[in-house]
Structure formats: C-alpha cells, structure tokens
Amino acid sequence: MSVNRSQSDWQRGATAFVSSAAIVALVWLVVLPWIAARPAVRARTAALKERGIDPAALFYTDLEAMPRLEARLAAQRRKHPEAFWQIGWSLDSADRHEVDSH
C-alpha cells in the first residue's frame, strides 16, 4: 500500500471494498442458494454430480466421469478395432463375421 496515499483515497477504497464484499456475500449467501434450490436447477446439478461431471473442470483429469467413459470406449475399441482406423470397414460385415464364426 502506498504510504503517499491520502486519507480520503484510503477511505474511498475501504468503502468500495466493504461494499463489494457485501455484494459478494449477498449474491453467494442469498441469491445463488435461492437459485440452487429451484427444482429444475437442483435436478440438473444432481444429474451432473451423479454422472461425475464437474462443469468447471480445467483439464480432463479433473473429470470424475473420464475413467468410466474411457473404459466404455476401450471396450468398444476392443470389440471393433478396425472401426477407428480402416476406411471402408463396415459394421455389417463384422456382425456377419461374428455370426459365421459362431
């Protein structure tokens, strides 16, 4: 904090700080909880939590759902590895091949 700052400047700053903090407190302690309590919002946030989705995730490792999604994808790749690499490969022919082999 600058020592040259005048007393009135500091008072103005302190007032601005207290007012801003009060607004933040009002929004976070009253407005947002009220919105969060709406049935539609509550249902949406609950559904996301249940599926392991954090919409504020910064990186894929922050997503709880990622291991589940990766495991599902790995199973799909194991079953049909050509599907993601081979142009012209068809699922129908793979199914036929599966039926024939049985």
Partner: peptide, 16 residues
C-alpha cells in the same frame, strides 16, 4: 469457496 457453489460451478465459472 466462491467457485464451489453449485450454480457457479454449473456455469463453468471456475476458480481461476
């Protein structure tokens, strides 16, 4: 704490 509120989180307003 501000970023952890459910509604804030829902709209991707992250801690950064």
């Amino acid at each position: 704490l501000l970023a952890g509120q459910d509604v804030v989180k829902y709209y991707d307003l992250s801690y950064a």
